[in-house]
Design a protein around this nucleic acid. Structure first.
Lengths: 256, 256
DNA sequence: GTAGCCGTCCCGCTGACCGGTACGGTGATC
DNA sequence: GATCACCGTACCGGTCAGCGGGACGGCTAC
């Protein structure tokens, strides 16, 4: 996790440290647990958490603290992700309707992909991804697409760092991964075969920026090994991603 | 807007004031604009905004500041909204697939409904709602449902405050609205007929908590007056909401 | 009983935060 | 090309908000 630990000598730093202490699957954290995770003195954590409650970034419950609905609302106003989500939704719907498998929209953030949207039905494959959650780039189809279209230095930086093994099929050899990335650029799609979780396969395509050389995001379809063949969906996934690409190009939302 | 203005005498207060200065349709705000909206001294706004950037809650661009992807990620971890969203998605998908109209999931926050999800296709009705955005409770189907199932004091508080007129059809008479709310409790669904925007109709049903007396959220289907008849979808919307209700009851995510 | 862990509160010290002020750049107006 | 308005940025000394060690009372568990 490349989160530089945030400055604990400033109020704001302490505040975000507390907020970021929550992971995707924490519902509620006690004060003691916050102290444990943040390393803040108990009195300080207590006070700052209290301040966060008054500022409606945290909720107080009988069992502890919880990220508030106000924070959700705020996060949804992040222009890049929100407008991406809005533009993408119809395309994601199409994909879901045609495949009835889990559909993802993701962006890259450092070594991870962050899922902006995840849609699926009642019978969706059991996948470790969560909306707003993270997965390493090297073991997901979306990640490989985003990596293939990333600037060379970022790509190299990731390729030269240790690649965590998630399943027996996870690609941990940089050379092999690099060859796959070349194939991704050639085909415009990436595959994943049980590299992030057992029993899951996946295909993804890039949402390209104006020039067509940088990827803003990626779209994927995921399904279980039994009923799902990634190769069967190359055309529609690529078409959806291209449709979104050209729609996004006609708007402004990029830059850095 | 019942946002008590946040304490400007504290760092944290200034920080959230800056963050909340962004509305749903702001992409990027200049420092000067932030100063204008927040009332903070320029030097202060500059410093705090800078701190927010170092803490990855804001992004710096050539044109100004922007809510960051990190904030999006954080907001998605708000347990109530996120788990609601995850549980609801299959039901929302079903509704979309059967109607091919815009489907909403919303919760109440004070006098407004906040949209947790909005899904639709390419031909979706032009609606003023945005994911993460707000609409007044009294002029939307989701709002009326949530209001009908709200605690009496909250309901009374809203009924006795001025009801903003959005269209010629907006209900601004508390008595009329109150009668509609009674009908909602009786039927388990609420309608909206061009009360929030011209040309739009809507039907919504409540997602009920354990007891069945409090509403956690509401689901709606929205369509244009021409092709869409809300009455035609009473059964499936109610069924979707009930399905989600019982699923949510089997998990824990509520309390206050 | 007592030992451990919890959340809360007190209170004196201090350095993080404050914001008036100044400066350089940029574009519009005359 | 001079003037002006407005922008973002940087400086810096005063001071009070924030700090956190410590104490306290409540609660399980053993």
């Amino acid at each position: 996790m490349p989160h530089q630990p945030a400055d604990l000598d400033t109020v704001l730093g302490k505040a975000v440290t507390i907020l970021r202490a929550f992971t995707v699957d924490d519902q509620v954290l006690s004060l003691a647990e916050l102290v444990r995770r943040t390393g803040l003195p108990k009195a300080t954590a207590h006070r700052v958490a209290g301040d966060l409650v008054t500022n409606r970034l945290l909720d107080r419950t009988d069992l502890g603290y919880r990220l508030s609905g106000g924070l959700f609302e705020l996060g949804m106003r992040a222009s890049v992700e929100r407008s991406l989500l809005e533009l993408a939704m119809p395309f994601l719907q199409d994909l879901y309707e045609r495949t009835h498998e889990t559909v993802h929209l993701g962006v890259r953030e450092g070594h991870d992909v962050v899922y902006v949207a995840k849609i699926g039905g009642h019978r969706q494959a059991k996948s470790p991804s969560r909306p707003g959650g993270r997965m390493p780039v090297h073991c997901t189809a979306i990640g490989k697409v985003l990596l293939a279209y990333a600037d060379p230095e970022a790509q190299q930086e990731i390729l030269s760092s240790p690649l965590e093994r998630r399943t027996p099929h996870t690609i941990v050899a940089p050379g092999l991964l690099e060859r796959q990335l070349a194939a991704v650029l050639e085909n415009g799609v990436a595959f994943e075969r049980e590299e992030s979780a057992a029993g899951l396969q996946c295909i993804a395509a890039p949402v390209l920026a104006d020039g067509g050389d940088k990827a803003l995001a990626a779209i994927s379809v995921t399904g279980p090994v039994g009923r799902f063949r990634p190769e069967a969906h190359v055309t529609i996934v690529r078409a959806a991603a291209q449709g979104l690409s050209s729609l996004a190009s006609r708007r402004r939302s990029l830059s850095s």
